[in-house]
Amino acid sequence: MNFAREARKLADFISDLEDDFILYSYENDYNYTHIGALLTNIILQAGLNYNTVVKPRVEKVLLQYPNHNTTSKFQELINSDGLENIINWKHHTKLNRMYDFVDFLMGNNINTCFDLKEYLLSYENQKEVLNLEGIGPKTVDYLLKLLNFDVVAVDRHIYNFVEMAEVEIKGYDYTKKTVEYAADFLDIPRKVLDYSIWSYMSNKDFTKSNKESQLMLEF
């Protein structure tokens, strides 16, 4: 298959970067046992800065509502306090996606993060999640990664990195398989390569932004 050849090329590119590319041991910021914090993360992450926008809201849910960690208890909290106040968010699109996800969990008797992980062991169940409004393959893979499945969730950083390596890009699934096979060639966990690419490209973005800011100040 072509993606296997491209994966080998990507693995060689990473090896040639040597000390410029650091392999980070992937560890979730949180050991997810709080369904509300988990949903806050996966619903908000798309298109937003993780460190400045998503992470503070996840931490707020964990710190202020530690006992509302199951789906049923989190739904009670939503009914009493209002979701927009719980996660400090007003735009209806992401709020509606979160409401829909809570309803989905309740409808499938998924009350804990462990229940959700068990449910997602089935590929057919993963496809059921994709039927939710606004939930795409990247969000499902990101959810799997947070629940400690060994997967790659392809975002703009991975697309840009793969393009930088002059590796062929043919959509989400093809790119995902290419990066996952590259991790296999490098003999490292797939989620480690995912996080290492994210860190590498995030740092490049930060450096670029810094330089642009300095130029704006100079001129």
Rank of each mutant, 00 (worst) to 15 (best):
P189K: 15
Y142M: 14
A183Q: 03
R190C: 05
V167I: 12
V162H: 08
V179I: 13
A183N: 08
H157A: 09
N160D: 13
K145H: 03
E168S: 13
A183E: 07
L143N: 03
V140W: 03
T178F: 05
L143M: 14
E168K: 13
F161Q: 06
I169T: 11
N160M: 10
F161T: 07
D173H: 12
A165E: 09
T139G: 00
R156N: 15
H157C: 14
F149S: 11
Y174N: 03
G136Y: 05
V167T: 12
F185N: 11
A165H: 08
L186M: 14
D150S: 10
V152K: 01
V167S: 05
D184A: 11
R190G: 01
V154L: 10
V152N: 01
K145D: 06
V152T: 13
G136N: 03
Y142V: 08
I188A: 02
Y174H: 13
P137H: 09
P137M: 03
E163S: 15
T139D: 00
Y181S: 08
H157M: 12
V152W: 05
D184Y: 15
D187Y: 09
E163P: 00
V151T: 12
V179S: 08
E133F: 02
D150A: 08
D187Q: 15
F149N: 05
V154K: 06
A183K: 09
L146C: 14
L146Y: 04
Y181P: 00
V140F: 07
I169C: 04
V167P: 07
P137S: 10
A183M: 10
G171A: 09
E180C: 01
I188C: 03
R190E: 00
N148S: 13
R156I: 12
P137A: 07
I158Y: 05
G134K: 01
V167M: 06
V154F: 08
L144F: 10
P189F: 08
H157S: 11
E133C: 01
E133W: 10
L144H: 11
D187G: 04
F149H: 12
A165D: 12
K145L: 15
G136F: 00
E168R: 15
K138G: 05
K138V: 09
K170E: 13
T139C: 02
K191A: 11
P189T: 05
I188P: 03
V152P: 01
G134A: 02
N160P: 01
L146W: 02
Y159V: 13
G171T: 10
D184T: 14
M164E: 13
L147S: 09
Y181N: 10
K177E: 13
A182I: 04
K170V: 05
I158N: 09
Y159Q: 07
Y172M: 04
D187A: 14
K191W: 09
V179E: 04
P137I: 00
A165Y: 12
A182D: 03
I188Q: 02
V140K: 02
V162A: 06
N148K: 12
Y159M: 08
G136S: 04
Y174F: 15
F149Y: 15
